[in-house]
Structure formats: C-alpha cells, structure tokens
Design a protein around this nucleic acid. Structure first.
Length: 469
RNA sequence: GGCGCCGUGGCGGAGUGGUUACGCAGAGGUCUGCAAAACCUUGUACACCGGUUCAAAUCCGGUCGGUGCCUCCA
C-alpha cells in the first residue's frame, strides 16, 4: 500500500510495525448535528483505505472515535459549546443530543456501506484515560494552570511546528477570535477546562484540578493509545486538522510517551459546493436525506466520491450526482449479466475470454497506489464496456468472483441486486416468441409492460438482455 | 500578515517530459421490425508570459485567477 504521508509530504510504502497487522486511527465526528455530504465524503474515503489494506491481506484494526463531549466554540468562551448549544436548540440535554446524533452516525455508516470500525469509542466513556494522560503530562512538566483550565505548554515541546510546517512567529494568534491572555504561547491549548463558576454544565466531571471537562485534543491521544498502542501505523483525518488538532495530538502524545505517535498521516481534502465550502451560514449542508429525497441512490453518492481523488478539493453538485447515477446504472447492468449467462449453444465461435484476474489486479494496483479511485473506476468502465453482449456461461463463476472482489474493494453493492422474478422472465420469453413470429404489436406491448416494472430490454445476436432502468 | 493547495475539452475528473485517461452530456453513424439506457466514430483540453529541453499541458521563474488553513470544523 502506497499512501501520501503528510509527515514527510511524499507518497510512501506503508510498512506496519507488526507485519500483516495495520492499525488505523481516524478522527471521527462531533455528534451535535446531522453530518453533511462533505463529512460523508471523508468517511467513505477512510473506508476505502481500510478496504484497500484488507484487500492486500492486512489484518486491520480500525478505531474511530466519536466526539460526544461538547467543546468550546472559542477559546474565550465561558461554557457554551456545540453540544450544549444543540441541546438548547432542541430542548434536550447535551447527553440526549450526543446519543441521538451518535446513533444516527453509526446508522449512516451502514447505509453507505462504510466498513464498521473495529472500535467506535466515545469520548465520554474515556474520561478516566484522558485524565490519566493529562496527569502524565503534568508530571513531566508540560502543563500549567490558568483561570479557565489546565493548558499544554507548546513552548516545551521541541518541534511543535514541524508537522504542519507552521511559522509560529508569523501566525496571527486569535486572528478571528480572542484568546486567553494568560496563555504562555498563542498555540497553547486546553487539556482540561474548568466548568464555569456559576453554571452547571450538562457534561462535567471531577478531576484532580477541579470540576470540568477534557479539552478536545486529549481524547484522540488517550483513546488511540488505549486501543492501538503508543504508536499507531496510520492516522487519518480531515485536512483542516493538520495545523491544530493533529499538531496538538502529536505534541501531547509524544511528550507523554517519548515515542512517535503515528508513522503515517493521511489527510482528506474538503469538498466544495458551487465553489463554496460547506458551512452553516451558507446553508449548503446537504444530508443523505436530501439525496434520497431527490431519488438518488446512496451507491451513486459513493460512486461520486470515488470519481475524484481524496487529496483534491472535489466538487459536489446535483448534476454530477446525476452523472454518477447514470454511470452506476451501467455498472449495475454489467453486474446483472450474471443472471443471464450466454449458454454455450448460443455463443458464436469466436467468444473472447476475459482475464478477470488481470483486470482485478490492475484495479487493485490503482487502489493501493495512494487510493487512485478514479483510475480504478476507469478500468472498471473499460471491462464493463467490453461485455455489453453478455457473459459466456463458462465464465460465469469467475465473473461473480470478480464482482465480489470489486464490491469488497469499492463498496458499490453490485452483487446486492436480485434476479428478475419468474413472471418477468416469462414476459421476456413471451416477447421473444412474439418477435420470432413477427408479432410486433405483442412484442412491443410486452416490452412496455416490462419497462413499467423497471426492466429494460436490448436485443443482441444471441437473444435479449435485460437491465434495470 | 503567515503557511498551503489549485487552475485540464460543455460539466466532472485522472495522469504524464514525447503514446486515446475515464465518466456524464452533445454530434454523426451502425445494428434493429421499430427501438434501446446497445455498438462505433467524433470534439484537435491542459489559465497567461518567459525559461530549461531534441521534445512541456507535464520541470523552473513570474503574472493573473480561484481556494483552504491559521477558531470548533471532514
């Protein structure tokens, strides 16, 4: 598996610490609202990484956290956070909101056929581990306490700026929001935040430093170390996390353990809608429900994701989803050929045999080359194109094996569709007989009837082939 | 202000120092009883200006334009 590593800014061959076993940690969602298509883009892309690794025979331990602790909207805030804000909006507690959207997210993974992570740990269930980590950092002298919390002193961690290649002196600290002036360095971040004096938060816990809640960055370090050890093979996340969240994760983890936190860093780029980023204020946070309401399939959405590379700033539009849906139909028609193999008796003498293994190998090569999904799809389109006339009966088995492997690597659910029913098969046959006796009226009527059931027909030299329309 | 990324044919989107990416849409045609979401053909794409090179859309420099991050963010 070759992957672009943000740590070295080059494409590298992934070498897991324990050969045959790859540990992957992914920064999961903050569950305070419905995820939008941009969020799902990234989760599908992480899924592709895991699928590619497994296709290689790797035993993958994949941990994705669920951030269900509210975090401050800004540094100078006095206690209001996204979860509490969401709770107030919906007349619930932060706990209710986190539970609702957490469950919704997990269901979304299934709907999109995203591989179920080995573990989906919640931040609220790992408060003790987070406190332990802060205690370790405190014992090693990396922390200091100011009025609103326990902070990490980034000045004590050599090479803090290296990962994101930051120029700390030139960064405009708090360019868009104010920050606590007691901080020693602009980049210092909270490890533990104190609850406000005159306000009880929905979510707060006791700690050696006082009642409060963990800072956002601690959870990923604490949970990844708990489940995957002090050094993980691959850490993935959104590109926006590079300068802050991941930089801080590295600083606190490596300060605590003295070991490399992650060997490879994968970052997915964001998508644009009509040239804009997705944001609340623009109201362009399209959800899976919006997609389904417009009668697009979630498989088409997944295909749209696969059509661009994970490191480019891709675009989402209904027109392109439309195009993806059409392309998907071609693939589905291709997969449906498995229900209607051409019997040897009907084959012309010069049936070319297909080397499915070779195609599969080529697709696999593209996927394991920094997840080049657009190229993998180009190959899939190529093979689908050459089989419009059907699959010879003797290749039936290798054809199904091919589709199964494709489904495993890409998650397009090509094998999910059923055969047409017996009544429909009968209609196809009756139409064929009507055609033989040149009864065009009956033939056309039967074709229309099938069409009304969503079955299209096309006539080939060896008989009709049906497909879903 | 600092650190980045990008600019490919109607749209989307790979890739590469010299060979058709691919998909969707369009045009023409073939097959067909008529059809087809079937097949074939087709569009002379790489922002602009210089430079390097036998050869650059691909490397280097500059210009213009777009965009991301520096706050929680996928």
């Amino acid at each position: 598996m070759k992957l672009y590593n943000t740590l070295t800014r080059t494409v590298e061959e992934i070498k897991p610490q324990n050969p045959g076993h790859t540990s992957v940690y992914t920064c999961g969602p903050t569950v305070y609202d419905y995820p939008h298509v941009g969020n799902w883009f990234t989760f599908i892309r992480y899924d592709l990484l895991v699928r590619a690794l497994r296709s290689e025979g790797q035993n993958v331990a994949w941990v994705m956290n669920i951030t269900d602790v509210g975090h401050l909207v800004n540094d100078a805030d006095t206690g209001e956070d996204k979860l509490e804000k969401g709770a107030r909006r919906e007349g619930k507690t932060a706990w209710d909101v986190a539970k609702f959207y957490g469950d919704y997210f997990v269901k979304g993974l299934e709907r999109l056929d995203i591989t179920t992570p080995t573990k989906l740990p919640k931040a609220t269930e790992h408060i003790a581990e987070q406190i332990e980590l802060v205690k370790t950092l405190e014992a090693k002298g990396y922390t200091y306490i100011i009025d609103d919390g326990v902070y990490y002193d980034t000045g004590k961690f050599e090479g803090y700026a290296a990962f994101a290649r930051l120029d700390l002196d030139e960064q405009q600290a708090g360019a868009r929001v104010g920050f606590n002036a007691q901080k020693r360095n602009a980049a210092d971040f909270a490890l533990w935040k104190f609850s406000p004096k005159n306000h009880t938060r929905d979510m707060e816990w006791d700690s050696p430093w006082g009642k409060g809640f963990p800072g956002w960055h601690v959870e990923c370090s604490a949970m990844s170390m708990k489940y995957l050890g002090e050094t993980i093979d691959i850490h993935s996340g959104g590109i926006d996390h590079v300068p802050v969240h991941h930089t801080n994760e590295i600083a606190q983890s490596e300060a605590a353990t003295g070991k490399r936190f992650a060997n490879y860093w994968m970052h997915t780029n964001h998508i644009l809608i009509n040239g804009d980023k997705i944001s609340k204020s623009l109201g362009n946070g399209i959800t899976l429900e919006d997609i389904e309401q417009k009668d697009y399939s979630l498989e088409a959405f997944r295909l749209l994701v696969l059509q661009s590379h994970y490191r480019t700033q891709s675009k989402f539009s209904w027109e392109e989803l439309d195009a993806a849906e059409n392309r998907l139909k071609t693939y589905q028609a291709f997969a449906d050929l498995r229900w209607q193999p051409i019997p040897e008796s009907a084959q012309s003498a010069d049936v070319a045999s297909t080397d499915y293994e070779q195609y599969l190998h080529d697709i696999f090569n593209e996927l394991t080359n920094d997840l080049n999904t657009p190229k993998a799809l180009a190959i899939l389109s190529q093979i689908a194109d050459t089989h419009a006339e059907g699959i010879p009966a003797q290749e039936h088995e290798s054809f199904e094996a091919f589709l199964d492997a494709i489904d495993h690597m890409l998650g397009l659910r090509l094998l999910q569709t059923d055969n047409i029913n017996d009544a429909q098969k009968k209609l196809v046959l009756e139409r064929q007989m009507a055609r033989r006796r040149k009864d065009w009226a009956t033939s056309d009527r039967l074709r229309d009837e099938l069409a009304s059931q969503g079955i299209g027909l096309r006539d080939t030299s060896h008989g009709p082939i049906w497909c879903r329309i």
